[in-house]
């Protein structure tokens, strides 16, 4: 059901953990739906120098979190904001249809962490980060 890459990132997730005094922390998802992603960023001169994550969720949720951190590590904020759920999906060689929302959640986690970074600096994140949802966009029954 999962690709080899998904299984690799699930069984050996990269960048698991927390960052003390992180410059940006984003948490998305809902325990009712069975997935929460929390992403920690260290940002230096507009570059994401370190990233860590913690995830409660299924195999796909853990794998997409891991892949998302890999895709933004060492990148500029501008580049990180361009990482879409499709990019995460492609990097993982796809996901089963019912799990696509996990990749969306990973994209939201990046955005939420960057938004927090700007808020901490006293800057309105909306014009830079754009609109993003912290919930699961109707993928499950929690919003019904």
């Amino acid at each position: 059901m999962y690709s080899e890459k998904v299984m690799d990132h699930f069984s050996n997730p990269r960048n698991v953990g927390e960052i003390e005094n992180a410059d940006g922390i984003g948490e998305v998802g809902n325990p009712k739906c069975g997935d929460i992603m929390k992403m920690y960023l260290k940002i230096d001169s507009g570059i994401i120098t370190d990233v860590k994550f913690k995830t409660f969720g299924c195999g796909a949720a853990i794998a997409t979190s891991s892949m998302a951190t890999e895709l933004i590590k060492g990148k500029s904020i501008e580049e990180a904001l361009k990482v879409t759920n499709k990019a995460v999906l492609e990097a993982l060689d796809g996901l089963p249809p019912v799990k696509i929302h996990c990749s969306v959640l990973a994209e939201q986690a990046i955005k939420a962490a960057l938004a927090d970074y700007y808020i901490k600096k006293g800057i309105d994140p909306t014009p830079i980060v754009g609109e993003y949802s912290k919930d699961c966009h109707g993928a499950c029954s929690c919003e019904k």
Partner: peptide, 13 residues
């Protein structure tokens, strides 16, 4: 604090 599918996948391994 954990999700069942992850647990099943690790058990399968």
């Amino acid at each position: 604090g954990i999700e069942g599918e992850s647990l099943l996948l690790f058990l399968d391994m």
